[in-house]
Amino acid sequence: MAYVITDRCIACGTCLPVCPVEAISEGDIYKIDPDTCISCGSCASVCPNDAIEEG
């Protein structure tokens, strides 16, 4: 199941470079493309705000 970014996201950018398939897009709150996400959890493990969860 793809990961999702919750409203706790502060758009710090920490998750962007760790995604191996570039499924994360920038914005006021970042978003993960569920069709591209491979559910590796790399983004969730580096998020300083615990804003990324399994969807």
Rank of each mutant, 00 (worst) to 15 (best):
A44S: 13
D28I: 12
P20M: 12
G55S: 14
C15K: 08
G27M: 05
Y30D: 04
I29H: 09
V21C: 05
A23M: 03
A44E: 13
Y3G: 01
C43L: 13
I52A: 02
Y3D: 00
P17R: 05
C43D: 13
S39N: 14
C37F: 10
I52G: 04
C9W: 02
I38Q: 10
V18R: 01
V46P: 04
T36W: 02
C43H: 13
A51R: 09
G41E: 12
K31A: 09
V46K: 01
I10L: 07
T36H: 04
D28T: 15
T36N: 05
A44N: 05
T6I: 08
C47K: 07
K31I: 10
C9S: 01
I5F: 01
I29G: 02
I32S: 00
K31D: 09
P48K: 04
S25V: 14
R8T: 11
A23F: 00
V18T: 09
A2T: 11
G55W: 15
P17K: 03
G55F: 15
V4Q: 11
I29F: 11
P17V: 07
S45F: 14
M1C: 05
T14K: 12
G27D: 01
A2Q: 10
T6Y: 04
E54K: 06
A11Y: 07
V21S: 02
P20W: 12
C12R: 03
S25R: 13
D7A: 04
I10F: 06
